[in-house]
Design a protein around this nucleic acid. Structure first.
Lengths: 109, 109
DNA sequence: TAATTTAGCAACCATATAGTTGCGTATAAA
DNA sequence: TTTATACGCAACTATATGGTTGCTAAATTA
């Protein structure tokens, strides 16, 4: 359906998912779905859906223990996003990259 | 409706928008809507919508000249995404950040 | 054994998203 | 002046998304 980088960008596009991810990153232990839900003003099922998307993107890993499913963050896939951005970082402070120059190059359009 | 960082993450979440943005970044001149459309298998209106979202996120700037609207990329807002990621980068290669450690910390859950 | 807790699954809902077509209008070219 | 081009606006469509509730089953606790 979708390749990894697409899943990744989609996963971090939602603010609630970024919050859940953040909560897991700063947590000192893996958290169960219920534990995560308690931190958010949302039903357990809502959280479960977000967790699934984060898991599909590789940003959250799971470990089943009895009736619990402990979740923990794995930020490694973000390296891919970082790689994507690195290409554009060369233009961040590029003063050539401004209106005048672009438009001058476009005189005969 | 949405703050800047949310607009930004949403804007880059769509693969077509990332392609349009990329095309503008590597273009040697600003491109009109029609010129961009010609590079994609999509209607002009479809491209216009994507451009609007990129523009709202600050990733694309516009300059009207007669009947043309020239678009050029502005990667600066991506700095914000980079800032977001920097926090998590400290955990990328953190060997403590693995299943066993998390679960050990969770023994009495 | 009975009650409680954790969580999955399915159905449902409202809204957002990604795309289209048709049409009108301003600008530029013949 | 007529024709062609670039573009915005509006309406429409299909599907994705973010959320809910209700139910069932498995695991744990009393």
């Amino acid at each position: 359906m979708q390749n990894n980088i697409n899943k990744l960008f989609k996963a971090i596009a939602d603010p609630t998912r970024r919050e859940i991810f953040h909560a897991l990153v700063i947590a000192t232990s893996a958290l169960s779905i219920t534990q995560i839900s308690n931190q958010f003003d949302m039903s357990r099922q809502g959280v479960t859906k977000h967790i699934k998307i984060l898991n599909d993107a590789g940003l959250v890993q799971m470990s089943e223990q009895g009736r619990n499913r402990f979740c923990y963050a794995d930020p490694k896939p973000l390296k891919e996003v970082n790689k994507w951005m690195q290409f554009y970082s060369q233009f961040w402070d590029d003063s050539l990259n401004n209106l005048d120059n672009y438009l001058n190059a476009n005189k005969n359009a």
